[in-house]
Design a protein around this nucleic acid. Structure first.
Lengths: 252, 252
DNA sequence: ATGTCTTTCCGCTATGGCCGGAAATGAGGA
DNA sequence: TCCTCATTTCCGGCCATAGCGGAAAGACAT
């Protein structure tokens, strides 16, 4: 708990904001309890964040404000790959009927930059901005498979191999074997490794140096993700989309 | 510059983040110059924010990270009116062909919660999360017109009546006259008060106490926003949508 | 009314935020 | 290759202030 960051007060406030997101709003004493700090300290931070308009106060409950919407929209539109991939992702969702997704890596975790719901898509709690361990998604595996091994090692050193379901990969060597296959095959699978009952097919988006800058995927219920559709049709559609995005990225 | 917030360090970091958004990324010395602080101080803050994963560093340039995307998505989906209004806004954009928008008030400013592009919509720099003075949009006027006068006075005291174009309303009494008309008529106009060449029609979304909780609008180029379409057709379509949203809000 | 829980306020104290200065780093340019 | 300039990064000290304990002010039951 010592001095691990230069400005500790900022760290407290940021943890506080993220906690308010998780709790979907809370009062002073609840936050104080969760962060194990005096109420007076938490109160100081809450007031500061509220005065700066990063929180809103309704009664005695504080919530994260839409200031973050502006910052988030900016952070996303800053990514070239986002605006180029978006129409392709929408198209992919339409033709497959399922959810189509775009992921990037940031600080060693997978970030859903965009997702589009197809006509038959099932309700799911995945949403834009969501952060997940890379090895638990087909998207993340496609990204890791096309990064230098040393870089992947650094990411694993930092974040470990936490399991999310009982199908998640938890052994480092096993993961590298899988990544090797993914790299050769050109696309990746996720069979209930993150969400029970869901399967996913993904392909990487590579730059000129064959370095993965993002990945696209289609995900849906296991019942619809099987046989030739799972092994041929979807991979081909996704690879085609990924390729179109790659081409559009180089000429822009 | 004195002690206006309980935790000043947090204020500095937040200003820093917002500056990075405006600049679309910057290095230490540029931020230091803009905020008029020593580079060493700015460096401490940038490192803290980067270690907490709220910024990303590419070379010597810091950018806002997609952590904000997650927080922003949460802040938005927390609003009941968002998920209920979204399909209606999409519909409105489709049938009118123009941009359709949803705005709420937060901390006395108008926040674009959602916007949908119709088939004929013109390119525009307005985007989700954008914050604008209430009196410069039809949306904001519809909201203010259906709030208690004392509340509107407080907002104006806090934010003033800054003009954005030469058509913006800058006189307080004139504004209250306009709001009175808007309240009686049930919908509001914006004739190039925020963006040159753009017109807008908006209607409020009221709760059971006739208190405005949001507003919906359609905006487009002046050339298409005229005659009966501007005075009859669009207002009717928007009022209908607003009414559907109101009904769905009460039964949910 | 009384007690319990919360939020809010107040003022002290030790800490760590802020800063000046210096050391690295890196990008041209000669 | 070496120098120059600009920038980032590191370091150490001082004193403002972040954090906290304690108390007051509400809120809401019983």
């Amino acid at each position: 708990m010592a001095k691990d960051v230069p400005v500790n007060a900022v760290k407290i406030s940021l943890e506080l904001v993220d906690l308010l997101r998780e709790l979907d709003g809370a009062g002073v004493s609840e936050v104080a309890k969760q962060l194990d700090k005096p109420t007076s300290t938490i109160h100081d931070h809450l007031r500061t964040l509220e005065q700066q308009e990063y929180l809103v106060k309704e009664g005695d409950t504080y919530y994260v404000s839409t200031r973050f919407l502006q910052l988030g929209a900016h952070a996303r539109s800053r990514q070239k790959v986002f605006k180029i991939a978006r129409p392709e992702i929408n198209e992919l969702a339409q033709v497959t009927g399922e959810h189509a997704n775009l992921m990037i890596e940031e600080h060693g975790v997978g970030v859903f930059l965009y997702r589009s719901r197809g006509p038959d898509a099932v309700r799911l709690d995945t949403h834009s901005g969501m952060r997940v361990p890379l090895q638990t998604t087909a998207l993340g595996k496609s990204i890791m498979a096309n990064r230098p091994r040393e870089e992947v090692e650094r990411i694993l050193d930092r974040h470990g191999l936490e399991a999310v379901t009982d199908r998640s990969i938890t052994d480092r060597e096993e993961l590298f074997d899988v990544l090797e296959q993914v790299r050769e095959r050109g696309y990746s699978y996720d069979d209930e490794e993150r969400v029970k009952g869901m399967r996913c097919v993904a392909a990487p988006i590579l730059n000129e140096d064959d370095y993965a800058i993002a990945a696209v995927s289609v995900s849906g219920p296991k019942s619809r993700m099987r046989e030739e559709r799972f092994t041929e049709e979807l991979p081909n559609q996704i690879l085609k989309s990924a390729n179109v995005i790659e081409v559009n990225l180089t000429y822009s």
